[in-house]
Write a protein that binds this DNA or RNA. Structure first.
Length: 505
RNA sequence: GAUUCCGUAGCUCAGCUGGUAGAGCAUUACACUUUUAAUGUAAGGGUCCUGGGUUCGAGCCCCAGCGGGAUCACCA
């Protein structure tokens, strides 16, 4: 491995530390008694509250003034300034803790433990005055140094997207807002889980490795089990398993599921992503709409303390009730064309008039979907329910109770993107078999995303599944909105990337 | 997959018409006991993404490839 100058210097320091009897990687617990944020928040109101504090963290900056020095350390709660004075950390006449350990051996990026008292500097900054300093971890690579000036402007910000995603640990160390985003993501799932628990639904786990993939229209990842010598697929959805549990007698089940889809990547698509799916017996899609509104409004309140969330240039308000349109109403509203009674030929003509690309393989449902995606979806900034989809696009949804050709399905659209999908679940086993067979036919015609026929799932609902409302909600997409993130890569710790060094094939 | 932009020091970036590779921060040395983008003085640091080509001469021009971003296509 080729080492640069700074890496060589740090390795020399490492050796020198060991030669001086200082372990650069000590094993003992360093008892932390305070975090930077509590000190910064608590000191002004009650300066006496903190006696001696013990902190640990990473050195983020060094301002050295000879026999005294200011450094900034970062712990899990944030950053705090630390004041070091030679005479205060020396052992009698032995000034080596300052002159050797601190001045010669420590670098930005190193992890140290400090013990001292809290005070206010002349400039009014709450600071820890160090009495004891201990090296907890010597680092061998230099950290990108980002400086923030008095006006809050960042200098030399660490912004290269490739490095940020590949080396997320660096991104987290150096860019505090990244930590915030991911903490929000965890708060979001916690809030959602609490909401669902409070309703009495049961959180469950279902297989990720599936012999048949189902529950969505997507191409799967394929793998192989050696002992069974069989092909398995990484799940594209967990819908069919959760419904089996409803057959089994649970009245409400949900799962936060990692799903995998072998498709293109974009700022809205990662090959693996997280979905929360919920199934509740004896309910329908109308009921589920109310639940989604309530849940997402609750999440916005938990995360932001209010229902409004700033997303790019828009302020999105999740306050209930949300707007509701049927798909046909929405298309009529945004394109001025009522497609309710159009034949397939009339539809393709109408689509062409709107400048939408249509080909012969597209059926009625697909054309409607195209029109919707082109003419309506981008305009739906405020959370909006779109209901009653063409039956062709929804092989797992129940036929509409009163509107022929449609199913009882809704999506919530927000900031121009779908955030959830739900329906009154199809529990008529005869109809379900027919729908699967139509999917098989699509598959034979070359549709790589057509569903497989799941004989065991059919057997299950032949034993009887109560009327059930089902929901899938994209956690990544919802997090993007709640954290004002432009790319899915900003809400995944480790988004999928090509390998840095490609191996010879 | 298509189009387009980008790849130069550890980090952020300049680099003229093609003529010996630059800055700030970081690093090293010295000075400085309340600084805060600390400061002052001095020094070191480069596979200019990779491989070809054109040229007396390529960081720059041409071709191919690798990686990334954006837009589109695909897609719940």
């Amino acid at each position: 491995m080729e080492l640069n100058e700074q890496e060589l210097v740090r390795r020399q320091k490492l050796e020198e530390l060991i030669n001086h009897g200082i372990n650069p990687y000590p094993a003992e617990t360093w008892e932390v008694t305070a975090r930077s944020a509590e000190i910064l928040e608590g000191f002004d109101s009650d300066p006496g509250k903190f006696g001696d504090v013990t902190l640990a963290g990473r050195i983020m900056s060094i301002r050295d003034m000879g026999k005294a020095s200011f450094i900034v350390i970062q712990d899990s709660s944030g950053r705090i300034q630390v004041y070091l004075r030679r005479d205060d950390i020396s052992h009698g006449d032995d000034t080596s803790p300052y002159d050797f350990l601190y001045k010669k051996m420590l670098d930005i990026g190193d992890i140290i433990g400090i013990r001292g008292f809290v005070f206010k500097t002349k400039m009014g900054e709450t600071t820890v005055h160090v009495k004891e300093l201990k090296l907890l971890c010597k680092t061998l690579r230099p950290l990108p140094v980002v400086k923030t000036d008095a006006d809050g402007n960042q200098h030399d910000a660490f912004t290269d997207p490739e490095m940020r995603y590949r080396q997320r640990y660096l991104d987290l160390i150096v860019n505090p807002s990244v930590r915030e985003t991911f903490m929000m993501r965890t708060h979001l799932t916690r809030s959602m889980r609490q909401f669902l628990n409070s309703k009495g639904y049961l959180e469950v786990e279902t297989p990720i490795l599936q012999p048949l993939y189902g529950g969505a229209a997507a191409r799967p990842f394929k793998t192989h089990h050696n002992t069974l010598d069989m092909t398995l697929y990484l799940r594209i959805a967990n819908e069919l398993y959760l419904k089996r549990l409803i057959v089994g007698g649970f009245e409400g089940v949900f799962e936060f599921a990692k799903d995998f889809r072998n498709e293109g990547m974009s700022r809205f698509h990662n090959p693996e992503f997280t979905q929360m799916e919920l199934y509740v017996a004896y309910k329908d899609y109308e009921w589920m709409m109310n639940l989604v509104e309530e849940m997402v409004e609750r999440i916005a309140l938990d995360l932001h303390g209010k229902t409004e969330v700033q997303v790019g240039e828009h302020t999105i308000n999740f306050k209930r009730p949300w707007k509701r349109f049927t798909m046909y109403e929405a298309i009529a509203h945004y394109s001025g064309i009522d497609i309710t009674n159009m034949s397939e030929e009339q539809l393709s003509l109408a689509a062409k008039d709107m400048g939408i690309h249509i080909d012969k393989t597209m059926g009625r449902g697909k054309i409607i979907d195209e029109i919707f995606g082109e003419k309506v979806e981008p305009h739906l900034i405020q959370p909006t329910f779109i209901t009653d989809y063409p039956v062709e696009m929804s092989p797992l949804a129940k036929k509409h109770r009163s509107k022929p050709g449609l199913v009882e399905r809704f999506e919530a659209i927000c900031n121009g993107k779908e955030i959830c999908n739900a329906f009154s679940e199809l529990n008529d086993p005869v109809d379900q078999r027919k729908r699967f067979e139509e999917q098989l036919e699509l598959g034979r015609r070359g549709d790589e995303e057509a569903m497989q026929l799941d004989e065991d799932f059919l057997r299950a609902i032949e034993y009887g599944m109560p009327p059930t409302a089902g929901l899938g909600i994209g956690i990544d997409r919802l997090t993007m909105i709640m954290t004002d993130s432009a790319s899915i890569q900003d809400v995944l710790f480790f988004p999928q990337m090509r390998p840095e060094i490609r191996e010879e094939a």
